[in-house]
Simulated scan of single mutants.
Amino acid sequence: MSQTTAFIEAGKRTVAIESQAVSALQARIDQQFVKACEIILACQGRVIVTGMGKSGHIGGKMAATFASTGTPAFFVHPGEASHGDLGMVTKNDVVIAISNSGSSAEVLTLIPLFKRMQINIISMTGNPNSPLAQAADVNLDISIKEEACPLDLAPTSSTTVTLVMGDALAVALLEARGFTKEEFAFSHPGGALGRRLLIRASDLMHSGTELPKVSPDSLLSSALVEMTRTGFGMTTIVDSNDQLIGVFTDGDLRRNVDQGINLATATMAQVMNKKPKAIKASLLAAEALNVMEQRKITALVVEDDNNHPVGLLHMHDILRAGIV
């Protein structure tokens, strides 16, 4: 067997073993899972996740997922907890203790202390008869038939199953809380997710004197001067009550030239687009970008509830803001 073939076979075997282990979790989303969700949902404090070794690494990710989806949580290393970090835990918290064997000494050392504080303990173990599982209020079964490691030593399938069980909890709780996109964005303000979910048209639009405006009886030549002044390749047309009644763009100019319109005498009422697309200032910039792409335009008029144009949002502004 060539080395290339051996690599491929090992990779495929690993994926198959871990996939089977994850599939077996379906039957374990049962009343114990429901009870764990109810305990966390009723928690007045935070979810404290703890685990040793590879379980600890998975626990750290689990806590991060909880925290970003509406369930306040953080990871506490069991070794550090025994040397002062236990002070971060309060009686209002809930503990998720992870140990595949259910016998990790560092984790078991903490159990009597949690019990003394009358904290609910949710264990995640591969052995329901283990000391940790027996001590917990709820035990979630993360047992596996085999590790993907051919030596059956390195945590592989077991850590994958633990991670998926944690995700299952997080998603179930997210839905139970009615967690929204906006709430998710507030915990991710620095990344692309936050920009897409937090930035609205009002944050990026050009307003005041930057907004091009002409009246319907304005000559086309005057409109071109206004378009040149603002540099957006378009202008709004408003009536005597400052209500939006049309727009005129560079594209409209080309079409009218092709039709042989008299550029010297034409008015906006004759050449404007009488069905302009306008958006509200509260619309997400990402949604405004979708509108532009669908209509194949580069700018949108922003109007208030009385149909008064209050701003102009250009595609370049959205792209510069990193919303893609």
Rank of each mutant, 00 (worst) to 15 (best):
G87K: 13
A16Q: 13
Q20N: 15
Q26E: 13
A67N: 11
D93F: 03
A73F: 02
I17N: 06
Q26M: 00
I98M: 09
R46H: 14
E106I: 06
F75C: 08
A42F: 10
F66L: 13
Q32F: 02
Q44K: 15
G56H: 05
T65F: 07
L25Q: 05
H83V: 02
S101G: 11
S55L: 06
K91R: 13
F33W: 02
L108C: 04
V76H: 03
T14V: 10
A36L: 03
T71Q: 08
G59M: 05
V107P: 00
I48V: 15
V49T: 09
I39V: 11
K35W: 00
T65M: 06
H57L: 13
I96A: 02
I98K: 06
G87W: 13
K35D: 14
C37D: 04
T90M: 10
A21I: 03
S68V: 09
P72L: 02
T65Y: 03
G102E: 10
C43T: 13
V49W: 06
S55A: 10
K61A: 10
R46G: 00
Q31F: 00
M52W: 00
E18V: 11
R46K: 15
P78K: 02
T65E: 07
T69D: 09
S103I: 11
T65C: 07
V94T: 11
N92T: 12
E80D: 15
I40P: 03
T71N: 05
Q26A: 15
S68K: 09
A105K: 14
S68W: 06
R46Y: 10
I58M: 01
G79E: 08
M52E: 08
V22S: 06
A97Q: 01
F74Q: 09
L41V: 00
E38V: 11
A36E: 05
Q31W: 00
M88D: 06
K61L: 11
S99Y: 07
S82H: 08
E80H: 04
F33R: 07
